[in-house]
Design a binder for these strands. Structure first.
Lengths: 162, 162
DNA sequence: AATAAAGTATACTTTTATAGTATGCAGTTG
DNA sequence: CAACTGCATACTATAAAAGTATACTTTATT
């Protein structure tokens, strides 16, 4: 349960583009700005291209641009393309232990828990766009605190134990 | 950004103990119930023991028990012991690319984003205990929906872009 | 046309974290 | 002492991720 390097670096590459939507950015330029190697940026950009987040033009004067305006690129979408979900559809199948089928297959409170966690993360990300990240750390932090503050202010009643 | 096998399996072992706090459970018994191998359960239980979540007694009639009552064992604590955080303290150091120091070291809106995500997950987990999971899937799902419903009902104002 | 600047595509290698196993030791109880 | 239990350590394998290498295609410019 850790963020992946691709999520961090991929998002950073996108932010380079978001900061200056008028120009196209070449691979070496992005690599320079973010302190990454050219081949690695090339790989990341291909992932972003396939995901439809950026467009590319070849040849002299070419490079990458955002496929849409920064405020139209939702962070939930971005993160899903870069790093997948906390809880995937194949999770239960992949965690059946030595059995073919998980012993809790038919009724599993943990499955609901994982889905809730996943949904919660997605919920936060859905509220933000690339544009949201074009601010300084203090501003983003303030938003996070306000967001979290709201969340703990009241609680849903606990699930009824059996 | 995926749940780890240890989180799934470790929590399941804990739930075995939580369902019947009067008896001690041996490794083979837990393994049988959850469809896991004995050595693997042994490893998991050692992690849980070191984390102070369970107690053990050796010899005939021995086995594992919860260190506290199910309602006193917070899921945030459990998950931290089993699988660590989404965003760790060494994250920025570990993602500096080809540089020694990340180019955004001094001011990074993404760092705040990751911390917010991490805090959000922890916030949900803090509201739950092992006892909370002693229910069926539908009940847990209902809780998750109520919880999420609250969260999306209103939003903090967006961070001010620069 | 020729050249150079760009991205494209695929496959490969390396690294690291995780998962899971094996083996022998040490308490406890009867 | 014998049987049952967990303890400790080290090891191996696997898989996923990270990152690299190489050769190719397209476009613009001259």
């Amino acid at each position: 349960m850790k963020l992946m390097a691709q999520q961090e670096y991929g998002l950073r590459c996108l932010l380079v583009l978001a900061k200056e939507t008028d120009s196209a950015f070449t691979i070496p330029l992005i690599a320079k700005r973010e302190g990454l190697s050219n081949p690695y940026v090339a790989k990341l950009m291909r992932t972003l291209l396939k995901g439809g987040l950026v467009t590319s033009t070849r040849g002299q004067g070419g490079g990458y641009r955002l496929a849409r305006r920064p405020e139209e690129l939702n962070l939930n979408l971005v993160m899903n393309i870069l790093g997948g979900r906390l809880f995937s559809e194949t999770f239960c199948k992949d965690h059946s232990g030595v059995k073919r089928l998980c012993v809790h297959n038919t009724d599993c409170s943990m499955r609901s828990l994982w889905m809730t966690l996943d949904n919660t993360v997605q919920g936060v990300l859905k509220k933000l766009s690339l544009k949201s990240l074009l601010c300084n750390e203090a501003q983003m932090q303030a938003w996070g605190k306000a967001e979290l503050g709201r969340q703990v202010s009241q609680s849903a009643p606990l699930p009824r134990s059996t």
